[in-house]
C-alpha cells in the first residue's frame, strides 16, 4: 500500500509528509471542573478536565512536601470505528494514564502545593491516531485553565516512517500500517524532551530525522496553544471589564 503517492508526493488524505493535521483547542468545556479543555487533532477529539489542587482523598497517599498528581485516561465506547465496551482498568488505559501523569508531573510545580491532590481526567471522544499526543496537549490546556503553576507548556506530537519518508502526525490508517511510530513530548520554551516512545524498529540515523520532525511538530502545537491561551486571557480580561 502506498502511503506516500510516488507521483504526487501526497499522503492518503492529501497532506504533504511534513504537514500536520488540523488542530483545534477550546478551553472551559466542563463548567464544573477547575480547568478543562477540548483538543482536536484531525479527527481525534479529546476532553481533559482538571480538579485541584484540593484535599487529598486518600490520606495514605498524601505527600507532605508536594502535591499528588493523579491521572485517568479512558476511551468512550464509541470512540473507535468498531464499538467495543471498554473496561476502565484495562492495560492500555493504565499505561497511557501513567505516561500522561509522568509527563505532566514533570512540568507542574508540585512543591508549591504540598499535601494536596491534582486530578487530571482525560476522555477520548474520537480516536483517529495520535490519541496520546492529543491527551497531553489537552491536559496542558486544562491545567493552564485551572491556573495550576507550571514550568512550561508540554506539547506532544507523533511522527512515523512509511514508504521511506518521515511522516508527521500519523492518523489511524498510517499508524496501523505497522511502520515505526515515534511519540515525542517536549517542554516548549526550554526545548527539553519529557516523553519519548517508539515502537517497531528504525535505523539510528533515520530515527534522528523522524524525532526531529516530531519535535518541530510539537513546537508548532506549542505556538498554537499559546495563541489559544492568549485569546482566552483577553476574553477574561474583557469580562472583568479591564
Amino acid at each position: 500500500m502506498e502511503y506516500v503517492d510516488s507521483l504526487t508526493g501526497f499522503r492518503l488524505d492529501g497532506r504533504r509528509p511534513n504537514d500536520m493535521r488540523q488542530i483545534r483547542g477550546e478551553i472551559g468545556v466542563v463548567a464544573k471542573a477547575d480547568g478543562s479543555a477540548l483538543f482536536e487533532m484531525g479527527n481525534t477529539k479529546v476532553i481533559a478536565a482538571v480538579y485541584g489542587p484540593r484535599e487529598v482523598q486518600n490520606k495514605g497517599q498524601q505527600i507532605n512536601n508536594q502535591a499528588l498528581v493523579r491521572c485517568e485516561y479512558s476511551m468512550a465506547n464509541f470512540s473507535t470505528g468498531d464499538r467495543t465496551r471498554r473496561p476502565k482498568g484495562d492495560r492500555r488505559s493504565t499505561e497511557i494514564s501513567l505516561v500522561i501523569r509522568q509527563t505532566m508531573e514533570a512540568c507542574i510545580l508540585v512543591h508549591l502545593m504540598p499535601r494536596s491532590q491534582i486530578d487530571i481526567f482525560v476522555q477520548v471522544l474520537q480516536a483517529d491516531g495520535g490519541t496520546r499526543s492529543a491527551c497531553i496537549n489537552a491536559a496542558t490546556l486544562a491545567l493552564a485553565d485551572a491556573g495550576i503553576p507550571m514550568r512550561d507548556l508540554v506539547t506532544s506530537c507523533s511522527a512515523g516512517y512509511l514508504s521511506s519518508t518521515p511522516l508527521l502526525d500519523l492518523n489511524y490508517v498510517e499508524d496501523s500500517a505497522g511502520g515505526p511510530d515515534v511519540t515525542v513530548g517536549i517542554l516548549a520554551k526550554t526545548d527539553k524532551v519529557t516523553l519519548l516512545q517508539m515502537d517497531s524498529k528504525l535505523p539510528i540515523d533515520i530515527f534522528e530525522n523522524v524525532m526531529q520532525l516530531a519535535i518541530e511538530g510539537c513546537k508548532a502545537i506549542a505556538q498554537y496553544i499559546r495563541e489559544v491561551l492568549l485569546e482566552n486571557t483577553k476574553l477574561l480580561e474583557s469580562r472583568k471589564g479591564l
Binding site: 492518503l12 492529501g14 497532506r15 504537514d19 488540523q22 479527527n43 490508517v173
Partner: peptide, 16 residues
C-alpha cells in the same frame, strides 16, 4: 469487515 461487521469509516480529506 471480514467478520461481517459493519463499520462506518471516516477519513479526512485536505484541500490545498
Amino acid at each position: 469487515t471480514k467478520q461481517g461487521r459493519v463499520i462506518k469509516v471516516v477519513r479526512e480529506h485536505y484541500l490545498r
